[in-house]
Simulated assay, not measured.
Amino acid sequence: SDTLTSNELGFQRVIPDLVGRTRRGGTYLGVGPEQNFTYIAAVRPALAIIFDIRRGNMLVQLRYKALFELAKDRADFVSMLFSKPRPPGLGPKSTAVDLFSAFAASATSDALYEQTLKAIQNQLTKTHGLPLAADDLTGIEYVHHTFYRNGFAVRPSPTYAELMTQTDGAGVNRSYLATEDRFALLKELESKNLVVPVVGDFGGPKAIRAVGGYLKERGTTVTAFYLSNVEQYLYQNKMTAFCRNVAALPLDASSTFIRSSSRDGGGFVSSLSAMTVEVKNCGRF
């Protein structure tokens, strides 16, 4: 099924604690679409790897990669993301609320949609030379068209604007589009090919193990691993395998799991835990 945007409205609430627990540099691991960017902007890793069992999420991430590289600033990025012409008056000091309020009044543009789609395709296949199959290009076009067709309501609730204008609970907006500095960090990582999408199964024998081997060769550790609510599916038959996969990663005392779990009354609540503590008990699952 499509998971083109997050449905975790309160995911920023753990960020102050997350920043206090983790170290800059190292490697961020995650799953899913754009919520990773906000966590990456918070922990400021040297490398980010985003897993997903769905190939479609890789295509979502590749579209983002192209847009980060093509956009000169946040307003350009939002313009291309939703095929809406850039409104006047937006600049480095604009807040996320300013951005999305201004773009809400900007109608979508067929010409900008086509122009941006071609630019994305060229960036990926010509500039980077990625050997994307026809089905992959069709998938990227589908994602691009969904953002164009639905606007901020890619997911009816929460909308993209709602996700980007939330706060950490103390009134601070920490979304990746909150400031130019956060956006610039993502743009730099993407431009250096340091945000890497991986198609793989958390409970499978290859993806996490292969990444762990690569990270050990580089002499880096995992700073944070965003799991979303994937574990509720792993408990069916793969939790032990997943735990052992994580235990094979290069970890230290600051390595932190970021989880999202359903709460009574609807919605999700995010939480943090120490990875090294949890993987000591893999055999008990």
Rank of each mutant, 00 (worst) to 15 (best):
L9E: 11
S109H: 03
Q121E: 15
R21F: 07
H144I: 06
R218M: 07
D52N: 13
P131G: 13
S273H: 12
D168G: 06
A224M: 14
V230C: 11
L4Y: 15
Q166S: 13
R263S: 10
T22G: 02
R54E: 09
A119Y: 10
A210H: 00
D17Y: 12
P205D: 06
R55C: 06
F103K: 05
S228C: 14
T116P: 01
L59E: 07
P45V: 04
E217V: 00
N122S: 15
A102D: 06
F152L: 04
L47F: 05
L227G: 04
A111H: 10
R13K: 15
D17S: 11
V198E: 05
E188I: 14
S262Y: 14
K238T: 03
R24I: 07
Y148L: 05
L185N: 08
E69M: 12
R155F: 09
T165Q: 06
R244A: 06
P85K: 03
L4F: 13
T223N: 11
R209P: 01
G26Y: 01
F147H: 07
R23D: 14
S79Y: 04
G204E: 02
L124W: 10
M239D: 11
A111M: 10
R74N: 13
D252M: 04
F11W: 15
K118E: 15
G139F: 08
E34D: 09
A241E: 08
H145V: 05
R21N: 04
Y142P: 07
A41T: 09
I120A: 06
F51C: 00
S6H: 13
T22R: 03
R174L: 14
R182G: 15
V269E: 15
V199L: 01
I15S: 02
I50K: 07
R54W: 07
A107I: 06
G26W: 05
L177H: 07
F152H: 08
D52Y: 01
R21H: 08
A210L: 01
D17Q: 15
Y39L: 11
V222H: 02
M164K: 15
